Simulated assay, not measured.
Amino acid sequence: MDLRLARVYDSPGQDDGYRVLVDRVWPRGVSKDAAKVDLWVREAGPSTGLRRWFGHDPERFGEFARRYRAELEGNPALGELRRVVAEHPVVTLLYGARDTEHNQAVVLAEVLGA
């Protein structure tokens, strides 16, 4: 399994493999054509309440990650992501956040075993 992370705002790489957007909301200013998204699993993103509470504050990331993992338990979207990762040799999880270290894709990659 080769699981990668990338900002949806960055240019797609030739070696990105299967590109999966894991944000609940489509990123502003990015056309679907330019994003080169193969699959959008919006239900994999954190709930609106959790996303707003976190506010991309790095000091809240530990608690955000704990709460987000709890939201993922029993979430069918996680099963869908596991299936996608098993079916494709390279999967890139796409996210819209500016912070490359403190976002839901980082947590998802950990949960998926990357």
Rank of each mutant, 00 (worst) to 15 (best):
D2I: 07
D2H: 00
L3K: 04
R4K: 15
R4N: 10
L5M: 11
A6R: 11
A6V: 07
A6C: 07
R7F: 08
Y9A: 04
Y9H: 15
P12F: 04
Q14W: 03
Q14R: 15
Q14F: 10
Y18N: 11
Y18A: 07
R19N: 09
V20D: 01
V22T: 08
D23N: 03
V25I: 15
V25A: 09
V25T: 07
W26Q: 06
P27F: 07
P27L: 05
V30P: 13
K32H: 12
K32V: 10
D33I: 13
V37E: 05
W40Y: 04
V41S: 01
E43P: 06
A44W: 02
P46W: 03
G49C: 00
L50E: 11
L50D: 07
L50W: 03
R51A: 11
W53P: 14
F54T: 01
G55Y: 12
G55D: 12
H56P: 06
H56D: 10
P58W: 07
P58E: 13
E59W: 01
E59T: 15
F61V: 05
G62F: 01
G62T: 14
E63H: 01
A65R: 02
A65Q: 11
R66N: 03
Y68V: 01
R69E: 13
L72C: 10
E73I: 02
E73C: 00
G74K: 02
G74M: 04
P76N: 04
A77Y: 02
L78K: 03
L78E: 10
L78T: 11
G79H: 00
G79Q: 11
E80T: 15
L81E: 13
L81Q: 05
R82D: 13
R83V: 05
V85F: 09
A86M: 05
H88S: 06
P89T: 14
V91A: 06
L93S: 09
L93E: 08
L94V: 05
G96V: 14
G96I: 12
E101H: 14
E101S: 13
E101C: 03
H102D: 01
N103G: 06
N103P: 06
N103C: 03
A105S: 14
V107N: 04
L108Q: 02
E110W: 05
V111A: 14
V111K: 04
V111Y: 09
V111L: 09
L112M: 11
L112T: 10
A114L: 13
